[in-house]
Design a protein around this nucleic acid. Sequence first.
DNA 1: AGTCAACGTTTCATGCCGTGAAACGCTCAG
DNA 2: CTGAGCGTTTCACGGCATGAAACGTTGACT
Lengths: 266, 266
Amino acid sequence: MPGVKSIRALERGLDVLQALQTVPGASLRELHQITGLPKATLLRILKTLTERNLVWQRMADGAYLPSSRMRDRLPAPAENDRLVEIASPVMARLCERVNWPSILGVRIDDQIEVIETNRPRSHVPHLPLGPVGVRVNMLLSAVGRAYFAFCGPEERAEIVARMRLHARPGEEMAADTAWLARMVRETQARGYGMRDARFLGETEAGAGPVIDDGRASIATPIIVGGQVIAAINLTWTRRAATAEHVIETCLGDLREAAAEVALGMA
Amino acid sequence: MPGVKSIRALERGLDVLQALQTVPGASLRELHQITGLPKATLLRILKTLTERNLVWQRMADGAYLPSSRMRDRLPAPAENDRLVEIASPVMARLCERVNWPSILGVRIDDQIEVIETNRPRSHVPHLPLGPVGVRVNMLLSAVGRAYFAFCGPEERAEIVARMRLHARPGEEMAADTAWLARMVRETQARGYGMRDARFLGETEAGAGPVIDDGRASIATPIIVGGQVIAAINLTWTRRAATAEHVIETCLGDLREAAAEVALGMA
DNA sequence: AGTCAACGTTTCATGCCGTGAAACGCTCAG
DNA sequence: CTGAGCGTTTCACGGCATGAAACGTTGACT
């Protein structure tokens, strides 16, 4: 969307609205010297904002105030939306630097749900990471392991317990406590998650196992306040790059991205 | 402010913003068929809204979403602002019908604070009801009595107790339990508040008593959920109209106004 | 009562800039 | 490989946003 010019008249209106949330109860004269806009223009803007019930005028002193109805309009506070909004531009920049796509995942029960991906920005064609909403295996994928290894022991126990209930394909190892402990230990020591050799592709519910999709991934957790809230992926095709090369050139960027998102969420 | 035209470009931008809070995650095509605006125009609007951090674009599917940062921008939830915002247009219409000014007051401790006035709309010159923020005597004024007589007995007891602590001028009757009881009984029976003959003007802190300012008032409580939250006044000059005449012609309108505000606050 | 300053409101000529139809190009599905 | 669907860019037109200036009203002060 470069090449698209923004609309000045709209910009000015939003300026005034913002000024009124900063200085509630400003008079026309005050708005004039705050925004620098001519009074005639301000009058038209205020008329428009008032018609839309974003602003109202107190009769007592003629002051303009932001409407309390703005609060009603706001959509339900979907917590993950805030995460995606903050992570989205960071992931865009990450992709621009390393040129491999990423996904952002959060835990849903005992799986990882993909809530954002920068794949459309990566100019690697036909590397179809699933759309948002797809659930990813927690024990074998890079994102899953990054989350699983860095969350607290209680949360890990809860996840394992859930897995044992329905035992989806690819979650057989949930029964092997020794295997789980070793996987966690290795991931923690390494500092990032890696896919298992026996990885199951990121499948829609009910799809069968994939022995080898030709891809490899690493993933780092996003930790805010000592708690893991999500994990970021980096995926590449094994025929185009070795794991060693990607780790050497991209792991730092991936970690920085995770840290930046964590900072924004704090 | 009639004669002021609103700004179409701003209107359209606000339309899009509103559409996005109704349908979070809309694509350009969806916004096109929701708002009816050409896609080129939408692109410019979305660019502007994105620059102002009111909207952001999810990379995964290119959908536009309202920013969660909007919540941060909102000023502190001043409860009385909502009341004034709802009451303001109602009072404007009331004044247009009866042509006498009103005040809107809420209880602050043991006084009534004026939080809105339609006096500037009444074309009665030099009837200087105080500016917003002025405190009015609770026992002798019409607004005060309307509030005092229709709030619960516990609240009345608290108010009286506070008054006895510092005994401001005009609050001497707080000591006379029998007088209070009779005043409350009469006001409740009448259904609206009236000024006392010994009324003290609406004075700034420290100003002296006023024996007769030539005005008279009636006031009705605003009751929502069985609880009084405020009271509305109607003031006139005694040399221009008798109490009987004003009560006959205006009391109904005053009561309707109070009911309308109560409905809006529910 | 009279005067003056401050503020909000209205007017109107100017040309900027918002507008939208149309052409283009990309991505994905079949 | 082909086509459809969607986002993006272009460009010429004229509607409409603009703001300086004149005007009306309000409130303060003497």
